[in-house]
Amino acid sequence: MIQQLLSLIRKEFLAIWSDKRSRIVIIIPPLIQLILFSFAVTMEVKNINIGVLDQDNSTQSQELIRSLKDSDRFREVLYLRSYADLEEKIDTQQILVGIEIAQNFSASLNKSEPAPIGIIADGRKSTSAQIAVGYIQMSINNTFSKNKESLIVRNWYNPNLENFWWVLPNLVGSLTMLIALILTSLSVARERELGTFEQLLVAPLSPSILIIGKTIPPMIISIVEAAIIFLCAITFFGVPFIGSIAILTLAICAFVFSIVGFGLFISSISSTQQQGILGAFILLVPSILMSGFATPIENMPSWLIPFTDLIALKYFLILLKGVFLKDISWEIALWEIFPMIVLGCITLIIATWFFKKRVT
């Protein structure tokens, strides 16, 4: 039995490497996506154009405008002539945010009264507008705070809020899932498309051995790819790694194990490799959206949050950011690893059962 399993594993490695489509999936997309997404996926908002309608024209209002111009967040600060001009600039997207300084701005400041400042943002770009408004509020507070030294801000785990430090761990998880899911979803579908599936059925191999033989090669390849992406993150992008290599290794193995069951199920119901790839992306997109990759899970509707517990990528991303930036302990890590192993066992059992029904 062991010899048969090793022969099947060897055959699967050769089949993956000899198939041009599988080679492309393994090599090209992960590298391209790692480079593109590292720079494209960002919550930072820079090079913003803002407009200022200064109806006060006082020393204090000019001081505020200078502070906005000195900020590296804003590309250009436009002087607006009227409220209608402000509306037009936002409507034509020449500016993202408009600031209206009222006529009694300096008088109110001199009397230590609330000084009126209006901020009008382009709601069509809600996320960028909210971040830009935050930058403007910070500039206002820094300019007119009487006790500037009383506020000390520290960012734990990512002191300078480096974008790569949170993007790259997320990409390690999502790209590892992409590779594992597509490789396994093509596995059985490839055999059907090439006409070799019937040969497997008449071979002296049980369905369980077939499933194991189809599972191990994609797992090994996915783990190796994850290691390469991890090395690129810490070597070329400078993301610090302060956690345990042992925890990271176990987490990657558990995560890949949790994914291959989904992939084998998709492959079992697919007649062609094209159907397998389509099925993989149908699962991939909601998994990424519901994993906390870009938006916090806490911000989702309360009825949707329990469904995220079925997303293995959710647990893996928590672990990755923990071992990259936080040096989490084994006790904490096992609480994230265990659900992935459970999900892997459940999906693999379902895939095996479905595969047996298809071959009998």
Rank of each mutant, 00 (worst) to 15 (best):
Glu100Thr: 13
Asn104Arg: 10
Tyr83Ile: 09
Ile117Cys: 07
Arg73Cys: 03
Pro114Gly: 04
Asp85Ala: 14
Gln103Tyr: 11
Glu113Trp: 02
Gln103Asp: 14
Tyr79Arg: 13
Ser71Lys: 04
Glu88Cys: 03
Arg75Cys: 07
Asn104Ile: 05
Gly118Trp: 11
Gln93Glu: 14
Leu80Thr: 04
Glu113Leu: 14
Asp70Leu: 11
Arg73Trp: 04
Ser82Asp: 13
Glu87Trp: 03
Gln94Ile: 06
Asn110Met: 09
Phe105Lys: 02
Leu86Tyr: 03
Ser82Gly: 09
Leu78Val: 12
Gln93Pro: 03
Thr92Ile: 13
Ala107Glu: 14
Phe74Arg: 01
Leu86Ala: 10
Leu80Cys: 02
Val97Arg: 02
Gln103Glu: 15
Gln94Leu: 10
Ala115Asn: 04
Ser112Cys: 04
Leu109Arg: 00
Ser108Lys: 14
Ala115Pro: 02
Gly118Glu: 07
Ser82Ala: 09
Ile101Asn: 09
Asp85Tyr: 02
Lys111Gly: 00
Val77Phe: 06
Phe105Ala: 02
Ser106Tyr: 00
Leu86Ser: 01
Ile99Glu: 07
Phe74Gln: 02
Ala115Ser: 12
Ile90Asn: 01
Thr92Trp: 09
Ala84Glu: 15
Gln103Cys: 05
Val77His: 05
Tyr79Leu: 14
Leu80Glu: 05
Ala107Asn: 13
Leu78Arg: 12
Val77Gly: 04
Asn110Phe: 05
Gly98Arg: 05
Asp85Pro: 05
Glu76Gln: 13
Leu109Gly: 00
Asp91Met: 10
Leu80Asp: 06
Lys111Phe: 08
Ile117Val: 15
Asn104Met: 01
Pro116Ile: 06
Ser71Val: 01
Pro114Ile: 03
Lys89Leu: 04
Phe74Gly: 00
Thr92Ser: 15
Gly118Ala: 11
Glu113Gln: 14
Gly98Met: 06
Leu109Trp: 02
Arg81Ala: 15
Gly118Asn: 11
Asn110Ile: 03
Ser71Ile: 01
Gly98Trp: 03
Asn110Tyr: 08
Asp91His: 15
Ile99Ala: 07
Gln103Met: 12
Lys111Trp: 06
Asp91Trp: 09
Ser106Gln: 12
Ser112Glu: 13
Glu87Thr: 12
Asp70Cys: 05
Gln93Met: 11
Ile99Tyr: 10
Gly98Val: 09
Arg81Tyr: 12
Glu87Ala: 11
Ser108His: 10
Ala115His: 02
Gln94Ser: 11
Glu87Ser: 10
Asp91Gly: 09
Leu96Trp: 06
Arg75Gly: 12
Arg73Phe: 12
Gly98Asn: 06
Glu88Ile: 08
Tyr83Ala: 09
